[in-house]
Design a protein around this nucleic acid. Structure first.
Lengths: 119, 119
DNA sequence: TTTAATAGTTTCCTAAAGGAAATTAGTATC
DNA sequence: GATACTAATTTCCTTTAGGAAACTATTAAA
């Protein structure tokens, strides 16, 4: 039996696996990337606008996810003193850097659907 | 009070939200993208190699995720009749199309870590 | 014969995610 | 005064994700 000699992982490789972990911890789940994608296309949006666009999301879930995204500096939350009050959400500059990633997610998803249907 | 008149979502927009859903359903979770990223760099790998590389994954989780990825045609599983038997996993052509997406995930994760540390 | 490696499976458990429905509180329209 | 819209919060519940530990079965080395 051959003894399996594996080289230890390179520093770069370990960093890359950590980067994947970091990104996925922020964005995993059913709704977060849909929220970010919606804000990326729609610009500034109100709570109810988001809720209607993200067909099917429960208000609690939307509220929770928005809070998490705000904590991670990806969106800002602004209360307007209209009557009744409205609350506006928009992407931070840092949040906008997700653009390329979201485009890739969309492109891959569209292509994957084609792949699956093809067979 | 102003009646809120929102245009219905464009067909394209609905398709894009669906594409995000599709992609995230396949790849959400703690380990799947790490598995795909590892196979993308490492080429063909055996079960125990993957387990060692993905530091901390439970064998049940690895086994389950590999099965799901195989069902979705992203990887292939090949049993070799070596003694003891070994099982090799590698990416399908379709699986390899995740390359760009994974690169974006890594890039964004690296940049995000810099952003957070900066402050 | 004991130990260890191969690739898992099984069982049991906890934690996290997510949904449904009701509620809150201020304002505005009918 | 009743109803509805704003943006949530609260409570309750179910489902899914994920981890720890033990176990299986084959083979090979010490």
């Amino acid at each position: 039996m051959k003894i399996q000699q594996e080289e230890p992982l390179s520093k770069e490789c370990i960093q890359q696996l950590r980067a994947i972990k970091d990104t996925m911890e922020l964005l995993s789940g059913k709704w977060k990337i849909q929220i970010m994608g919606t804000l990326l296309r729609g610009g500034t949006m109100r709570f109810m606008e988001l809720k209607r666009t993200l067909n099917g999301i429960a208000p609690k879930k939307l509220s929770n996810d928005l809070q998490e995204l705000e904590l991670n500096k990806l969106i800002t939350r602004t209360v307007k003193d209209t009557k009744p009050i409205t609350v506006e959400y928009s992407l931070t500059e840092h949040g906008k850097t997700l653009d390329n990633l979201i485009v890739e997610i969309i492109d891959w998803g569209l292509n994957h659907r084609k792949e699956i249907i093809k067979k």
